[in-house]
């Protein structure tokens, strides 16, 4: 409790950024804040995705709705999604350049064999919106396959949306945090009441290898962040105490204790490819603050003026 009164300084520490992944540590906040951030990243950061599909010709083996569903799930690079309106906010009827990017998929297999139709075959209908394109830097995304003389001709509109509406608009593959583990080792008792063999047992009990025996054959925490709170070490410690004579000492206090630091969160965000991982995080913060701002607007003016 005292911590809360003292007031904390929230802090973000970036651990790692790659093209598709970001890892950072958010500290000095409660789980509510961390979870809000996670939820916003999954469900409320807008991206572009194919939403309306017009099928002109389809002689492939898959039927229209099947293809439409597959098209929808292709991640589109949406860094500039701010330039587009949500279809519901746009003044146009149908679609316009402010709310939609149009693609055309027109392929015919004339050569024979099996032709893969991939996201690379999606062409923009107009110059505008070239910044929105399939995120296939890791290789083309297969849409369907065509046999000889099979043909497909589709126009489709990519529109802006959020993951809450449909999972295809979610910018993340995974967005999770974990609590920072806090491992307490009663070294004094471990040394006095445990044999080296028993200490080794505790070390080996951990499935992820958090512990190591150092030169003095004492337990040492080496990979703290690997800990996944399985409590195997605690159980092992307890087991050794109960089976050894030390149980007679009537000491119930455990020698190993794993707990969580309740204000330090290690985040891991993997992008679907639609947005850079760092922009997912920053956009999530923007959206979160905007949400709070929107609520603030609702405060009656009387209180507002005070």
């Amino acid at each position: 409790m005292s911590e809360v009164y003292r007031g904390r300084a929230p802090n973000i520490e970036i651990n790692k950024i790659t093209r598709e992944k970001i890892k950072f540590t958010l500290s000095g906040v409660d789980s509510s804040v961390a979870n809000s951030l996670r939820r916003v990243m999954i469900a409320e950061v807008p991206t572009m995705a194919i939403d309306v599909v017009h099928i002109h010709t389809n002689t492939s083996s898959l039927h229209d709705e099947f293809i439409a569903h597959r098209l929808g799930l292709i991640p589109l690079i949406s860094e500039n999604q701010d330039n587009y309106d949500f279809p519901r906010d746009c003044k146009c009827t149908g679609h316009c350049e402010h709310c939609a990017v149009q693609f055309r998929l027109k392929v015919k297999n004339q050569e024979g064999g099996v032709l893969d139709v991939t996201s690379r075959d999606l062409r923009h209908l107009s110059q505008q919106g070239n910044d929105v394109r399939p995120a296939d830097s890791d290789g083309p995304i297969l849409i369907l396959k065509l046999r000889k003389n099979q043909e497909i001709d589709i126009t489709c509109n990519a529109r802006k949306g959020i993951g809450k509406e449909h999972a295809k608009w979610s910018p993340v593959a995974t967005a999770v945090f974990k609590y920072t583990p806090d491992i307490y080792l009663n070294q004094q008792r471990l040394e006095s009441q445990f044999t080296a063999e028993e200490r080794k047992e505790i070390v080996n009990s951990c499935p992820v290898g958090v512990y190591k025996l150092n030169e003095e054959s004492n337990i040492e925490v080496v990979k703290l962040n690997k800990c996944m709170f399985c409590e195997e070490c605690m159980r092992k410690g307890e087991m050794i105490i109960t089976r050894s004579a030390s149980a007679l000492l009537n000491v119930h206090d455990n020698v190993v204790r794993v707990s969580q630091l309740k204000d330090r969160f290690i985040f891991k965000v993997e992008s679907s490819g639609a947005l850079k991982p760092e922009s997912i995080v920053s956009k999530a913060f923007t959206i979160l603050t905007k949400k709070l701002d929107d609520i603030k607007q609702l405060i009656p003016p009387l209180i507002n003026t005070r």
Binding site: S31, N35, R39, Y179, P207, F229, C230, E232
Partner: peptide
């Protein structure tokens, strides 16, 4: 195999609640 891959022997996991962000009180 599970243990080798850093998982619990019995197939249990530590999960966090999606709505609150708190740890789920059981494996």
């Amino acid at each position: 195999i599970l243990v080798k891959n850093g998982f619990n022997y019995t197939g249990k996991d530590v999960l966090m609640c999606g709505t609150s962000g708190e740890l789920v009180g059981a494996y």
